[in-house]
Design a binder for these strands. Structure first.
Lengths: 214, 214
DNA sequence: TATATCATGTGAAGTAAATAACATTAACTG
DNA sequence: CAGTTAATGTTATTTACTTCACATGATATA
């Protein structure tokens, strides 16, 4: 039976964390796990774990717990990770380079199949087995590799224009690393990864603690 | 009057966004702004903007709005960004390199003053004007530069050990880029930046839309 | 100086999320 | 095979967050 309740984004976020934790348990040969153990492992409450899973069905056995491999597969499937996802990226600077070589994406079934830049000094360079291409090549790559998600790793000033172009090329979702809120049509899925926001939460919190500083 | 109410983390996150938006307005020569304009600029509701600010005081003028430069300074001060913050980082791989050269940190008053690695092939290399140092050098750098915050940009398997070492060296807060929940004492402030979680929120959401795929 | 307009600040109302509590079912024990 | 323990799934409760609505104070206008 499919639950049609709206799922909180926080739940999806935690699901991603759970599934990675389950992969680790599985690699370590653990076959069974309880909501309490998952909770301890990722730093939430056991009730939260069960509640999150309850949005999608019943995956455990009362009195026993969860089968690690099964729950891992279920969570991956829920997240849409039971398949392979091809991505394109714009921005071949240091951040773009780091993201292209980031193992964490591959481990979750993501492949960056095209890297684009408008900087002539960057076009033609190689990142792993990819050549940095001019922006005009994007439509072909997208078509050839069935790409639906684009990553923006450009300087802030270019981000909006790049996003607009991506949408023109048919992208349905954008992961934006530029610290700028993008203005896009509602039907486009966008999430921002702002590298310094979390840092500023830390400085905010440290502000209430003993300064002991210069 | 100081409000002692607990401030939601979501509010702090938005404050960080507001303050960057205000900096942009200020650079563009805008001197006055309303909660509605801020709201439109960053994609939240006007009431939300006012509520967020209300946790910290009254910064506007009724009937008029906010002075851009003043509000910018207030928000920066609230976030603890009215001062300079020195950081250390462990992990001189591609991600570490990208973070070291990331302009967004400098623009907000952050400086990475030490980069460490235990990989002998990386130690001695230069990133900008910094030399990659062995882990043993961390305590001296921290003391010399009054560092309170550490960044972890290592492979997942090293992250916990690095975090423990940072705390031994006196760090009070950690920004962790490794996709692994760290187990640390309560008095340490930790935030994780997981590069693929947001990507998986996108795939989750795309899962409910027309597949049109292979 | 009265009047109209504007936009903040805030208490109240509404919504959403997290936690607690417990009934249910499975496994183990003697 | 009854009794005990364990851990899920789910309802109820509490807490937290957001939105609404409006009184308040400021500016502009005639």
């Amino acid at each position: 039976m499919v639950k049609t309740l709206r799922v909180p984004e926080a739940t999806v976020t935690r699901l991603s964390i759970y599934s990675r934790y389950l992969e680790r348990l599985d690699r370590n040969g653990v076959t069974s796990v309880s909501s309490g153990e998952i909770a301890d492992g990722v730093g939430v409450s056991p009730a939260q774990v069960r509640k999150d899973l309850a949005y999608f069905g019943e995956f455990g056995t009362r009195g026993v717990g969860y089968n690690v491999k099964d729950l891992m597969r279920y969570t991956l499937k829920i997240l849409g990770l039971d398949r392979h996802w091809n991505l394109v990226m714009v921005g071949a600077g240091n951040l773009g380079y780091a993201l292209c070589t980031y193992k964490g994406f591959n481990m979750r079934g993501f492949s960056i199949v095209g890297v684009f830049d408008n900087d002539l000094t960057k076009i033609g360079k190689r990142i792993n087995d990819l050549e940095v291409l001019p922006m005009e090549s994007m439509p072909d790559i997208i078509k050839d590799h069935n790409v639906r998600i684009g990553i923006i790793a450009t300087p802030t000033r270019a981000a909006q224009e790049v996003a607009d172009y991506m949408i023109k090329c048919g992208m349905q979702a954008i992961l934006n690393f530029a610290p700028l809120p993008l203005t896009l049509p509602d039907y486009i899925e966008v999430r921002n990864v702002d590298l310094s926001v979390k840092l500023e939460i830390l400085t905010f919190n440290l502000g209430f603690k003993s300064a002991q500083n210069v």
